[in-house]
Simulated scan of single mutants.
Amino acid sequence: MTFDGFETLAIHAGQEADAQTGAVVVPIHQTSTYAQDSVARPRGGYEYSRTANPTRVALEECLAALESGTRGLAFASGMAAEDTLLRTVAKPGDHVIIPGDAYGGTFRLFSQVMQRWGVSWDAVPQTDPDAVRRAVRPETIAVWTESPTNPLLNVTDIEALAGVAHEAGALLVVDNTFASPYLQQPLRLGADVVVHSTTKYLGGHSDVVGGAAVVADAELAERLAFHQNTMGAIPGPFDAWLTLRGVKTLGVRMDRHCRNAERVATELSRHPGVERVYYPGLAEHPQHTVAKRQMRAFGGMVAFRPSGGEEAALRVCDRTRVFTLGESLGGVESLIEHPGRMTHASAAGSPLEVPADLVRLSVGIESADDLVADLAQALGK
């Protein structure tokens, strides 16, 4: 019998009971090498753990199932996944279109690493597919998008953007970290590759760093696997095991993240000390209709701008007690940060610079009443 329910796949895909012991949890295969029956004849198909490790393979198979992809590949971090993918699909002289409000680490990779390697890029507001179409060049090999974006939570129409990319003979790469495969499956909407920081919602407990890429096309997947092995930016077996453990509860965690975030966003939108709230679940969000069409729910990330400018934003970040001041996102605990001085500092002075008074929230799974009360006291009202 074949099962395709998301929660069932998260618990069972790639995770059959251990054949030798019957263990229902995938073992941590903490080994670097494997015994071979004779020269160049690995006993179980494994020869060296940079190339493949059973714990990592279980994670990769699970991620491929959750994203409806041909193959999943795990990496040491989200940035390692991005870098390895770009080295696979791009060469000097190529061009990539990135979001006008890309994550700071992605912007840094393009502006300070790929550009020096001879890959050019343009940052374009991707909520307008026609603007992306106008930015396409003959040498454009990929449109790179985030949806929702980090940190302004813009939502791109993935299906429309896939059409633009494919008209140009380019790939569409979607960073699905904020939504997670539970809320959104870009490959089903026409994307070619999905990338994740598995550190975030997939791991879900702020205790492991990792990344992943899930690919629709088998030939591209083989090329990426070659680079994964050759470049070697892979997670260790314990990291893969921790991520796989987190994936099992992704569905139930995301349900709570989304409910709490919607409550927080609604309360902030009513607060006299808040000038603007960014959350796709609010009816006034400019891409609310697109988000409603392509997402199961609206995610656990909220951003807002308090009255009083940057000093007020910094003050709010310093005053919260339930929300922990810290970078990253997607864990069970709520986090607050100032993107301009923290996660997006690398974009300062560029066209991608974020508003100085912006506050970003990763809304956890604590009591929603406590989260709302904490923000109210931090805002001083």
Rank of each mutant, 00 (worst) to 15 (best):
M1Q: 11
T2N: 09
F3T: 15
D4N: 14
G5H: 12
T8Y: 08
A10V: 14
A10S: 13
I11Q: 15
Q15A: 15
E16K: 13
A17I: 04
D18R: 06
A19P: 15
T21Y: 03
V24D: 14
V25A: 09
Q30M: 10
T31L: 12
A35K: 07
A40R: 14
R41C: 14
S49Q: 09
A52L: 13
A52S: 15
N53E: 10
V57Y: 00
A58C: 07
A64I: 05
L66A: 07
G69P: 00
R71V: 13
G72W: 01
G72C: 03
A74S: 13
S77E: 14
E82Y: 05
E82F: 08
D83I: 08
D83W: 10
L86P: 00
L86T: 04
L86F: 10
R87N: 15
T88M: 02
A90M: 10
D101P: 03
Y103D: 12
G105A: 13
G105D: 12
S111W: 03
V113P: 04
R116I: 04
G118N: 11
V119S: 05
V119L: 10
D122W: 11
P129S: 08
D130T: 12
V136L: 13
V136T: 04
V136Q: 00
V143I: 13
S147Y: 02
P148K: 00
N154H: 14
D157L: 08
E159S: 15
A165R: 09
H166P: 04
E167G: 11
A168C: 08
A170G: 05
V173W: 03
V173R: 04
S180Y: 02
L183F: 01
L187R: 02
L187D: 01
L189P: 04
D192C: 07
V194I: 09
T199Y: 03
G203M: 05
S206L: 15
S206P: 02
D207T: 11
V209S: 06
V209D: 11
A216N: 09
A216S: 15
R223M: 06
A225S: 07
H227W: 08
H227R: 11
N229L: 04
M231G: 01
G232S: 05
A233R: 05
P235Y: 12
G246M: 08
M254C: 04
A261K: 03
R263K: 12
T266E: 11
E267P: 02
E267V: 10
R270K: 07
R270L: 11
H271D: 12
R276I: 06
R276T: 14
V277E: 00
V277T: 03
Y278G: 09
Y278S: 08
G281L: 06
L282D: 03
E284L: 04
Q287H: 07
M295I: 02
M295P: 01
R296F: 09
F298M: 08
G300W: 00
M301A: 10
M301K: 01
M301L: 12
V302S: 02
V302G: 04
A303W: 03
F304N: 00
P306R: 07
S307A: 15
G309R: 07
A312K: 06
L314V: 13
V316M: 02
R319M: 09
R319E: 11
T320P: 03
F323S: 01
E333F: 02
E337Q: 13
P351T: 03
A356Q: 09
D357A: 13
L358V: 02
L358H: 00
V359T: 02
S362H: 00
G364D: 03
G364E: 01
A368S: 15
D374W: 08
A378N: 01
G380I: 04
K381A: 12
